[in-house]
Amino acid sequence: MTPLLSVQGVSKRYGTHIGCADVSFDLWPGEVMGIVGESGSGKSTLLNCMAGHLVPDTGAVVFDTRADGPRDTVTMSEPERRMLSRTDWAFVHQHARDGLRMGVSAGGNVGERLMAVGARHYGDIRDKATDWLARVEIDAARIDDRPSTFSGGMQQRLQIARNLVTGPRLIFMDEPTGGLDVSVQARLLDLLRGLVRDMGLSAIIVTHDLAVVRLLADRLMVMKSGHVVEAGLTDQVLDDPQHAYTQLLVSSVLQV
């Protein structure tokens, strides 16, 4: 069996400041990995290096492509990488407006990736968009409304539908529940869990919310100052943390 994503020695510096340093791990098909750490710990830098938004200084990000097997996405050509990010990859931004076209209807937002890979039948595109709106629990009657008329939770769900419509195999999420009301977060987490399970998705979720990773992630990586200080099964890392920083992080969470 081949890892879906193999991150090998990825480092990124900003001048003398370390973004992330020498990060390596394998992500297997169907696995959900959480990356936690406080602001500035390098988790977002790492996510952006993996998703092709930043070019790492060193290291490889090897993705098991459908056509050619494992390929280093850092050194592959930009058209190939952008094609991946429209087809087999998905990226859910913290702020839905970064991941949506706010001036385009909900249906158009969902349909864009289909059209980007060559769909040219309006009726089919619309049927798929309708189906996906239902799957993320958005009323089909809203298909022609712009996302600017949606609530924050609906926008985030629309962003997910827009990303998943092409049946990606790997989804990157940057604080997907950040900025949402707690009740809305729960609904989103439930939805994500179901989609991950039913589509066999692999996911990498960056968050500072330990409750989110406990519910969503199989595995956890803890970052501090650009370094991975601890990694393992999510519940193991949270319940029996070995590193001083992880112990501090876990003990700092307010109990409800």
Binding site: R86, S105, G107, M115, A116, R120
Partner: peptide, 18 residues
């Protein structure tokens, strides 16, 4: 440069939907 023209059809899609 990369021939990514899906967006053009989004515009036409919006037309038809409206």
């Amino acid at each position: 440069s990369l021939e990514e023209y899906g967006l053009m059809h989004v515009k036409l899609y919006e037309d038809i939907s409206r």
